[in-house]
Design a protein around this nucleic acid. Structure first.
Lengths: 154, 154
DNA sequence: ACGACATCAATGACATGTCATGAATGATAT
DNA sequence: ATATCATTCATGACATGTCATTGATGTCGT
């Protein structure tokens, strides 16, 4: 192990970990007919509904401005229901359909496999330390705010 | 800080760190008229040339099978030169052009800013630990192999 | 009531990663 | 010499993230 790790190497390690994880997630979620981004939409809607597009976008880790097309696909597939806002006609309100809830359950079974892989490789103390270091990198950034909304530390 | 960190949180932290880093890189590299993936191509070609497409793909962290279109764009822009292989007609040989070398220099100045942000946030010991933990996650995976080729540990 | 500004969602355009396919070429076995 | 298999690269199709633009709608100040 070299004496010092460069920042470039850190960047590449994060990219490699994300890409590898994404490939594995996609592989497993294929069995549930979902992509990783679609699975995240269903998961976020399961925890709180209805949500507007902007709210959904803020709660997703990717923090897209307004994930219209992603949601569009799920609506077309009958997994998400979209209805106009009552008080504000600009807004749409999104909910899971029964089919969406079922597909989410299938997806959860698949993502649990990936989570298990992580849990087998890192001890609880290591996971805590990895989380601490990544949060430190993300401090005071939009990405960090999205994480804070999803996983508050206070 | 909760007692235990879930594997799901680790996945989301990695994604957030990668997305945030990618946005910042894209922001800075715009000044050099490059995207993060294009900058990586130029960087890999600067360290060793000529390369075939498959070799380039293997050395890139994304480890794409054969990054034809990415390279196509760079050839069109005159930053990379493509010539037929001498012994094997299937193969193309890729090199940086003088314009590519200049653009790479501009890109390096920009990525140095991002690297500096990382260096300011994490102490050397923390960077070493972050690298160790991410490598542990990547062990015995294709993504880990790409990292090993780029940053050997032996 | 009206104008200015802000917000929401949809859409266009582009980059790129992923999966699959096909054509051309090289290697190997018979 | 020929058939089979493997490799390389280009391309099609799709998903999705990013940036920008547009139209509709809501809020606020005058």
């Amino acid at each position: 192990m070299p004496a010092t790790i460069s920042a470039t190497e850190i960047r590449h390690l994060i990219l490699a970990a994300q890409r590898q994880g994404s490939r594995m997630m996609a592989d497993h979620l294929r069995a549930a007919s979902l992509t990783p981004a679609q699975a995240e939409v269903l998961q976020v809607l399961a925890t709180r509904e209805p949500l507007t597009l902007v709210e959904l976008g803020r709660l997703m880790i990717s923090e897209t401005g307004s994930p219209s097309r992603l949601v569009d696909t799920l609506v077309t597939r009958g997994l998400v229901a979209r209805e106009p806002g009552r008080d504000d006609k600009r807004v749409v309100r999104l909910r899971l359909t029964p089919a969406g809830q079922q597909t989410l359950a299938d997806g959860r079974a698949q993502t649990a496999i990936i989570d298990d892989l992580i849990t087998r490789r890192l001890a609880p103390g290591e996971m805590a330390e990895l989380a601490r270091l990544l949060r430190k990198l993300l401090q005071d950034t939009p990405g960090g705010h999205a994480i804070e909304m999803r996983y508050p530390t206070t």
